[in-house]
């Protein structure tokens, strides 16, 4: 979503407050407490409901009536056949592979590119440092939609149209990540580097042995958000890709509705297939998402 999210200067942010103050902490159950929980449960239903319904739809047997009144949540004849049908009619594994390839490029590009550049901007003294920083901030302020057409023309000129490299290219090193890494390096105490200089270490050795190990947390945040951002990107791959063999998952899924417009069960099965990897990813790396949000107010 928003790319205008600016990085915070701090690298380690407070964990979110489960201990944030509640106005009252008495033992008795107050009507306010009941109302509070009721609203929360309602919210949880509103958020989880659609997902649960998709799961239910995807499991409903072919002969089962979809449009019961009242709607039925538990499938009468649960079946996995719709998942098979989707996989048969749409090359989902191919799309998954393409998405993964683009995401890996984005992660490697951002982690390596932003870390190196961040180190130069945060730790090295050289003429032109201010100018480069201004350029990076300027790039941060350019919304991707407004340069879409020119990006496409450049990619096309370079003969990269309809390739996965082109899909990864515009976000291969994001300005936001460069600034995040710059701030991470800048906030490190200078003593370590100074000691390494005394020991005769050159810039590369100091970078690899001294500074990088201290900003691994921020690097993980950059990696996680680059992955999700690339995995969910839709507009740019939609523009760049034309051959179905090259589709990423989002572009391929977009065709679900056209292909299966007659059967919501198949659309539901398709969305479930698409959701499983990203939910697993989120479950495993959850803490980095929240750490990242607090550190940079950035989003995938």
């Amino acid at each position: 979503m928003s790319h205008l999210d600016l990085p915070r200067t701090q690298t380690r942010a407070p964990r979110t407050g489960t201990k944030a103050p509640g106005p009252r902490r008495r033992r008795r159950i107050l009507p306010g407490t009941v109302a509070r929980y009721a609203v929360l449960v309602l919210m949880a239903l509103l958020l989880a409901g659609p997902l649960v319904w998709q799961l239910s739809l995807s499991l409903k047997g072919a002969g089962e009536p979809l449009y019961d009144r009242p709607p039925r949540l538990i499938p009468e004849h649960p079946t996995f056949e719709h998942f098979g049908t989707v996989l048969d009619r749409i090359p989902v594994p191919r799309y998954l592979y393409n998405s993964l390839l683009v995401a890996v490029m984005a992660v490697v590009g951002n982690v390596v590119g932003a870390t190196c550049a961040g180190y130069a901007l945060g730790k090295l003294r050289f003429r032109g440092r201010g100018v480069v920083t201004v350029l990076v901030v300027a790039a941060l302020l350019v919304p991707s939609e407004t340069v879409l057409v020119s990006q496409f023309l450049i990619v096309r000129e370079a003969g990269l149209a309809d390739t996965l490299v082109a899909v990864a290219l515009p976000t291969l090193v994001a300005a936001l990540n460069v600034l995040l890494m710059r701030n991470a390096f800048a906030s490190l105490p200078p003593e370590f580097e100074e000691a390494a200089v005394v020991d005769g270490a050159n810039a590369w050795q100091r970078f690899i042995r001294v500074s990088v190990p201290q900003v691994k947390g921020v690097m993980t945040v950059v990696a996680v958000f680059s992955f999700v951002g690339s995995w969910n990107d839709f507009l740019w791959p939609l523009i760049v890709l034309s051959d179905e063999q090259n589709y990423t998952l989002t572009v391929g899924l977009n065709r679900l509705r056209g292909t299966f417009y007659d059967d919501p069960r198949l659309i539901a099965a398709g969305t479930i297939i698409a959701l499983v990897p990203i939910i697993a990813f989120f479950a495993v790396l959850q803490r980095y998402f929240f750490r990242g949000l607090e550190a940079g107010g950035l989003k995938g």
């Binding site: 550049a117 730790k123 090295l124 480069v132 350029l135 790039a139 340069v147 460069v178 810039a203």
Partner: peptide, 27 residues
């Protein structure tokens, strides 16, 4: 910190600057 070779910071910056200039600022 200082560095001995004037190109060192630019080598660090090269990948990021290439992408940012070529894919954002030039467009």
């Amino acid at each position: 910190a200082t560095h001995r070779w004037f190109l060192t910071p630019w080598l660090f910056l090269a990948p990021a600057l290439t992408v940012i200039v070529l894919m954002v600022l030039v467009p």
